[in-house]
Amino acid sequence: MPITQIGGALVADDETLERAAEVTAEVASHGIAGVSINTVTGETLELDLHLSDFLLNVMAGLSNGSVSITGLPEEVTTTTAAEMLGISRPTLMKRIAANEIPGHKVGSHTRLRTEDVLRLREAEDAKRTQAFNKLRRIDEEFGALG
């Protein structure tokens, strides 16, 4: 059997792991537009890009050894939030003090809502993308002049 459930874990055989590696390598070389699932009734379900990407990441993780999947907690520590944002914990604490991201105390510890951290990360990713695109346009303009 290619995939077996043992307790709460799914275990894949070597052939399934090899195929997962092949598919993820193929997707890496061509990009992903989405994943479709064919049901036994003949219907085709189109998965959105986020879910398609999630499934391909699971397959990539499987092909590299093992995968652990868990949901995000409602709240995170400042250490976890800083890691999620790619900044240092002291920088995060300064941003909380400046009310750039809301935090609250649980005893003597600061906690942040995961939703707020993810929202800030998306906003900062969008700012970086805009800045990169602006630099690219400037580069193209000066490149066209020279």
Rank of each mutant, 00 (worst) to 15 (best):
L92H: 00
E83L: 04
K105F: 12
A82Q: 09
E100W: 03
L92S: 02
T79G: 14
I87M: 12
I87Y: 00
E83G: 02
T91I: 03
G86W: 04
I96N: 06
A98K: 14
T80C: 04
L92R: 01
S108Y: 07
G103D: 05
E83N: 11
K94D: 11
I87K: 05
E83D: 13
G86H: 06
T91F: 04
A97Q: 14
A97V: 09
V106K: 14
N99P: 00
T80I: 14
A97E: 13
T78N: 03
S108C: 08
P90I: 05
S108M: 09
A98W: 00
S88P: 00
N99D: 12
E100P: 01
A82P: 08
V106P: 01
R95W: 13
H104Y: 15
L85P: 05
E100R: 13
A82Y: 04
M84A: 08
R95N: 13
K105C: 07
I101L: 13
P102W: 02
T80G: 04
G107Y: 07
T91K: 15
E100C: 01
G86N: 07
R95K: 13
P90E: 05
S88R: 12
T79P: 03
A81E: 08
I96Y: 04
V106L: 14
I87V: 15
S88H: 03
T91Q: 14
K94L: 10
L85V: 06
K94S: 12
A82T: 08
I101Y: 06
A98S: 10
I101D: 01
T79M: 11
V106M: 14
M84C: 00
E83H: 08
I87A: 03
G103K: 13
I96T: 04
A81T: 07
A98F: 00
V106I: 15
T91M: 13
A97K: 15
T78E: 02
N99C: 03
E83C: 00
I101V: 15
G86E: 03
A98D: 11
G107K: 06
T80W: 01
I101P: 05
S88W: 02
L85Q: 03
L92Q: 01
R89M: 02
A81S: 07
K105R: 15
A82S: 11
V106F: 11
I87T: 06
G107M: 09
S88G: 13
M84E: 01
I101G: 06
A97L: 10
R89N: 06
H104E: 03
G103N: 08
L85A: 05
T78L: 06
P90K: 09
I96S: 07
A97C: 07
K94F: 02
K94N: 15
P102R: 14
T79A: 14
T80H: 10
G107N: 07
H104M: 05
T91D: 11
A97Y: 10
T78I: 06
T79V: 11
A81F: 05
A97I: 03
K105S: 11
I96C: 08
M84S: 04
G107R: 12
S108H: 15
T77N: 09
I96P: 04
A82C: 11
T77M: 05
I87R: 09
